[in-house]
């Protein structure tokens, strides 16, 4: 047995203290502050477990988890797959090719087909906002939203919060600057909801064309200048420029974008001295972030985010399964 984190003994495997607050995890609004904190605590336990040689538990033994990814994804899909397997579930990955004409039919038809196979948890990613919610109305199992269009990506927000909490010891009171393509970002929407719930001060930074309309009424600080936006920030979260969701031009060129809103060491100078940089991936190096910053282990939390992803998803799946047990 290798280095066990202090205080964690391997025979005391982490277990959910209370079941997930709703049958599905579609949005951060499915959570309340106590359950969000309990999920993060549970995930901490799984982080330690995941660093052990024997990582496998039986909390989901006998359960079937289906990963239904209409949009391609490497890290989220493998993260959910590992999370399910480490909890002892049988995991099936499906990536129905989404043709532009039939993708909607495929969603409902595939949902009905999969539901008939009696899965316990369906993890879905889809390019349309609201797709996870629609699916949840048509199936009898639990549905986890792994990203729906530009709406929400709640497990990403949970892993971001966990990464921050481990880096700073808390989320409450942190100043978090979320920068870049806010308009098309489901990560931003979920993070705004969760971080605000946990007591962080959230700032949105980016060009006006990439800000959602009405954002000034979200009760957040909005900045259009990156240096101004990161000033004093504890966390700078860079978002990917989502060219695949763009209709028409939002910025003139990637080089102008990098010049004005790309994060490099110089623009980071005004941030808090203990600033940490995050990115949900995949990164466009040289467009929204400079490799020099992204790869600096002193300030980058990007690899931690990936590690926290598995632990957070284990916590989500274990809590949803605990609710299934109580039915």
């Amino acid at each position: 047995m290798e280095n066990t984190a202090p205080g964690v003994r391997i025979h005391e495997a982490p277990r959910p203290i209370f079941p997930f607050p709703s049958r599905h995890f579609l949005s951060i609004t499915d959570l309340d502050p106590p359950s969000a904190k309990a999920l993060l605590d549970l995930a901490e336990g799984f982080v330690s477990l995941n660093r052990e040689r024997a990582k496998k538990l039986d909390l989901l033994k006998g359960r079937t988890l289906i990963n239904l990814f209409f949009e391609p994804s490497t890290r989220t899909q493998s993260s959910f797959e590992l999370a399910g397997k480490r909890l002892g579930a049988d995991v099936v990955n499906m990536s129905p090719r989404a043709s532009s004409v039939t993708k909607g039919e495929t969603l409902i038809d595939t949902a009905a087909t999969l539901n008939a196979m009696q899965p316990d948890i369906l993890v879905i990613r889809h390019e349309a906002s609201g797709a996870a919610s629609l699916l949840s109305q048509k199936v009898t199992c639990s549905v986890v939203n792994a990203g729906d269009g530009r709406h929400e990506h709640p497990s990403q927000a949970m892993l971001d919060a966990l990464s921050m909490r481990r880096a700073f010891g808390r989320v409450d009171g942190l100043t978090v600057a979320i920068c870049g393509d806010i308009l098309h970002s489901r990560v931003a929407r979920s993070n705004v909801a969760l971080l605000t719930m946990l007591g962080a001060r959230v700032r949105l930074v980016g060009p006006p064309t990439l800000m959602p309309v009405g954002v000034e009424r979200w009760g957040l600080e909005v900045r259009h200048d990156l240096e101004e936006g990161v000033a004093g920030a504890d966390v700078v979260m860079m978002l990917r420029l989502q060219t695949e969701r763009m209709q028409g031009t939002f910025v003139p060129s990637s080089r102008e974008y990098f010049h004005l809103w790309g994060l490099d060491r110089a623009k980071l100078a005004g941030a808090s001295p203990r600033v940490r940089v995050m990115h949900p991936g995949p990164m466009n190096r040289g467009v929204e972030i400079d490799s020099d910053v992204a790869d600096d282990p002193e300030i980058s939390l990007i690899q931690d985010q990936v590690e926290m992803g598995v632990a957070v998803r284990m916590a989500i799946l274990a809590s949803l399964a605990a609710r299934l047990d109580n039915r």
């Binding site: 906002s129 609201g130 729906d148 269009g149 530009r150 709406h151 929400e152 489901r186 929407r189 959602p212 309309v213 009405g214 954002v215 009424r217 979200w218 209709q247 028409g248």
Partner: peptide
Amino acid sequence: DGASATEGEFAARLGLPA
């Protein structure tokens, strides 16, 4: 072009092209 809702706070929260 591409819009399925009226631009505003509500559509922005739902993530609908507006």
